[in-house]
């Protein structure tokens, strides 16, 4: 479903993503781990066609990000780390706008369906200007699934959420994956979430892919969350993290 081949990006001569080659199968929940500045968001920006790679290629649902970006955009949904919406518009108006941009034929009806699914129909007529981070995150998720994409990209979806919000989001992600067959690509810092949600993980350090395996294999080899954390830290050494900071 997602295939990258030596995908590379650099800014002002500094390599942000270094020859990344990945394969993610249809129906997977892929957890992308890495320290701050590792290149996770840059990778998502390239895969969602927001940024052009310096070199390398990638395909999403069989469409090349470089040569067929419109087809890629039709196939994906994207939730950025901080969901920004139009504060003067209500949640429903924001969602109708994004549904129309995605070509949803009856946007009002679809928006109601999605808000129901996310248990946030009560937000429909409220202006998003006064929304909490959790409410924004839910509306953000709603805008990404309006057109029922094949692949959903989530950039740090749990960032800033309280434990209840994290659980609610996790349940939704699992539901979108199991009920609607969406392939999910998720950037995250939370190792505990990886084990509970993902079917495969990869670790990026300073733009380089240093680990990629299925979650069963990882848990069989490394056991619980604490062991996973140790694995993660061993792959992104403290010395290198300090260098980034």
């Amino acid at each position: 479903m997602i295939r990258t081949n030596r995908l590379t990006q650099s800014f002002d001569g500094v390599i942000a993503v270094d020859a990344l080659s990945l394969e993610i199968a249809k129906g997977e929940i892929f957890g992308f781990l890495g320290h701050n500045g590792a290149g996770k968001t840059t990778t998502i920006q390239m895969l969602t066609t927001l940024a052009r790679p310096a070199s390398g290629t990638a395909t999403i649902a069989g469409h090349d990000i470089g040569t067929d970006p419109l087809a890629v955009r039709r196939a994906i949904g994207y939730v950025p780390e901080n969901v920004r919406l139009y504060d003067t518009l209500t949640a429903a108006e924001n969602l109708i706008f994004f549904a129309s941009l995605s070509g949803v034929a009856a946007p009002e009806r679809r928006v109601n369906q999605v808000l129901d699914l996310l248990d946030c129909a009560y937000l429909a007529d409220k202006r998003v200007g006064g929304f909490s981070k959790g409410m924004r995150q839910r509306v953000g998720l709603a805008q990404a699934i309006l057109h029922q994409p094949e692949v959903l990209f989530l950039d740090e979806p749990t960032s800033g959420l309280d434990p209840m919000g994290i659980k609610m989001l996790r349940d939704l992600i699992l539901r979108l994956n199991t009920e609607f067959g969406m392939t999910i690509f998720m950037n995250t810092h939370l190792i505990s979430e990886i084990a509970k949600t993902c079917t495969s993980i990869a670790v990026l350090s300073h733009g380089k892919l240093v680990f990629h395996d299925r979650i069963e294999a990882v848990t069989a080899r490394y056991g619980d969350d604490a062991a996973l954390e140790e694995l993660y830290l061993s792959l992104t050494p403290v010395g290198r993290l300090a260098e980034v900071a």
Binding site: T49, P80, F98, S102, Q143
Partner: peptide, 10 residues
Amino acid sequence: QTLSLMLTRP
């Protein structure tokens, strides 16, 4: 920063 949501549409 609403552009990222808009520019990932077809």
